[in-house]
């Protein structure tokens, strides 16, 4: 009789899954880059003195915070082509990866705008004043003094946001993206749905290791960029 649970399926599945991390990374990477860009714009709107801009940016963030990823994913997947059709653009033949990137860019931008805003606000106003008082222009003050400090403050939150994005991205299989989750489901289907548990455990291991690696990497970055924060080591 066949066993209910056979651990060898776990180890056999991992090498089959790993090549599809490429898709996972590509989609997550694109969303991160675009999300940071739009997140910066949103954060600028939130920090601007124009009430309308602030309100709009905050509303956007609230909406994103209140929408489950899977709902946003399907809304984009079905909604964007429908909207595009109205203005005469046919998006029906486009790759699913496009919709995944759109979805997670929308979501990541909202998260990043909060990360950027809070780290900016955490920096003492005096740092900017001191920078312009020694003759730096506004731009130079931001680039050389404010930004490097804000970056250090933002790093842990940025790392967490990246891990969260990677995990939410696991839902992309629902609209047919063949990333590692999509591949796992294909493997299960080819086993006629037997040993699904083992494949899912393999999947969990891949994600778990990935998250730990990202976490450690960010802890390292923080240590590297966190100069000026060391209080006890030197002197």
């Amino acid at each position: 009789m066949e066993k209910y649970f056979d651990a060898s399926y776990i180890w056999n599945a991992i090498p089959l899954l790993l090549p599809f991390l490429k898709v996972t990374f590509l989609v997550a990477g694109s969303s991160i880059v675009l999300g940071i860009f739009f997140g910066l714009l949103l954060a600028a709107a939130k920090l601007s003195s124009m009430k309308v801009l602030q309100k709009m940016a905050n509303l956007y963030t609230t909406i994103m915070r209140c929408t489950p990823s899977i709902v946003l994913l399907f809304l984009v997947y079905y909604g964007v082509p429908a909207l595009a059709e109205n203005i005469g653009i046919n998006l029906h033949a486009i790759e699913t990866a496009f919709f995944v990137v759109v979805t997670f860019t929308l979501q990541f931008a909202a998260i990043m705008s909060e990360v950027i805003r809070s780290s900016y606000l955490a920096i003492n106003k005096g740092q900017f004043e001191a920078a312009v008082s020694v003759g730096l222009t506004r731009f130079q003050a931001y680039r050389r003094i404010i930004f490097p400090q804000a970056l250090v403050i933002a790093l842990p939150n940025f790392g967490n946001a990246m891990i969260a994005l990677l995990q939410e991205g696991a839902l992309a299989y629902t609209i047919g993206l063949i990333d590692i989750v999509g591949k796992a489901n294909l493997i299960i289907a080819s086993n006629i749905n037997a040993h699904a548990l083992e494949i899912y455990i393999a999947l969990a291991i891949v994600y778990w290791v990935l998250s730990i690696v990202i976490e450690k990497f960010f802890a390292m970055l923080e240590k590297f960029f966190g100069k000026g924060k060391i209080t006890l080591e030197t002197t």
Binding site: G126, E129, I145
Partner: peptide
Amino acid sequence: NYNLFTNK
């Protein structure tokens, strides 16, 4: 309050 650049 000095306002030294903390990252320098």
